[in-house]
Write a protein that binds this DNA or RNA. Sequence first.
DNA 1: CGAAGCATTGACCCTATTCAATTTTGGTGG
DNA 2: CCACCAAAATTGAATAGGGTCAATGCTTCG
Lengths: 252, 252
Amino acid sequence: MTPHITHKLRGFEELQDPAEHWLAELAGRNLREVPARVDLLRQGDCTGPMHILIQGWAIRYKTLEDGRRQILSMLIPGDLFDINGFMASSMDHSIAALTGVTLARLDNDFLDIARREHSSLEKALWCDIHVTAAIQREWSTSLGQRTARERMAHLMCELYLRQHQAKLTQGRCCAFPLTQIELAEALGMTPVYVNRTLQDLRREGLVQLEHRTLTIFDLPQLKRVALFDSGYLKICDDDGGSAPEKENDYAL
Amino acid sequence: MTPHITHKLRGFEELQDPAEHWLAELAGRNLREVPARVDLLRQGDCTGPMHILIQGWAIRYKTLEDGRRQILSMLIPGDLFDINGFMASSMDHSIAALTGVTLARLDNDFLDIARREHSSLEKALWCDIHVTAAIQREWSTSLGQRTARERMAHLMCELYLRQHQAKLTQGRCCAFPLTQIELAEALGMTPVYVNRTLQDLRREGLVQLEHRTLTIFDLPQLKRVALFDSGYLKICDDDGGSAPEKENDYAL
DNA sequence: CGAAGCATTGACCCTATTCAATTTTGGTGG
DNA sequence: CCACCAAAATTGAATAGGGTCAATGCTTCG
């Protein structure tokens, strides 16, 4: 069974067979389980080794002195953290398990070996770094310019599409294990207003959010509501983006 | 005259003499001037080569289809862009000159040479990448959690301190070449409210903003207003941050 | 079965937006 | 040096998007 990270990286760059095997092996070694809501790494801590998130969701977040908390990004199965974290000495933010998670720890020579022996993988990793940065920029754009409703729709699009890339969706459904409080912290709004906004989207027949599962009934319309431009999730050499995108059944 | 990038990178990692000479030489070659308000690189463009911003300010920004614009970060003299941009194929955002700027273009083998021959420089560049990402996260935090007043104070602290690291401040003054409209686009608020917020900070004797120059009368207090935690601007191996910071006269 | 956490609702309020007008500034040419 | 223009800054008044507070209902899980 190919791990989710492989599916994701393939979307950036075709991987050579040896690279895929090596990656699959690494994704099954040095595993560790962490229960939900536990910090993996805390603001101010020394940075740890690199990890692949194998299963479950995590978040990056930052807290202000007075307790306000901003969730900075979502980590889903197949995501890497923290690439080259050992270069920095201390964390400027925290990482926490949102659900129970399984992590694979990577050795410090991971990047060196990738560079020397698996150039296709190294390139894919660089693309991943770029996309991660692009996602962060898109969040800034959302928080600065989009309305509450647009932000919420945008986050749903992002998480659906990212899970799709990692082959984690089932038709129009995908996991969405955020409480409304966490959703509020991610979107820079209050839980009360998250609730109301969610109801609006539900009432309009765009989405449904139940039992930690998101169902998107009308993705094209949801994208329109969100002013969603999917370019940022695949800015890498894939094929430039102008080619016809036949992808799969459920239109991207 | 040592270029600003050298001052900045020294703050991350002690540079070897040959590295400094090489860098100084690069900062004086392949120069190009671009007038104010011209795009250097546009959303959707193919990515270009790496550059050092030698003189003047630039911005990264992103526009939504309906014209709303979010400024994502400020580029000041000594900043690099776009590191390893050639790995991505298309830009998810734009870069524009805010003032007239001078750029130094770097050859594509810049990073390779740095890696092979100037390991201290390579490490410093990695730190720079990390700090850049940390700044972006701090902007997300600001936009999501801080009030208008706090955001404004925070941006002023950030830009003052970053300029200080690049030896671009003069006492309590530094450049601040943003119109109120641009400030609004950076802070996710309207120009009208920027004006009012600015007047509040001025009235309280915290800052003054005139002739594109920012004067900070009470940095410690401004930091308190902003809930500013300077850790994120120097998360690299400097010395961890717990050592006594005697720095200079105007308390950091 | 109780308790804690989460979701939902209503009423009120405030921060920040919108719209529109006026003043100031800075740059240009005569 | 002044006149002129466009862009930027400033002001006021009305308004709306989203926050706050507080109560209630619903889950989940030990």
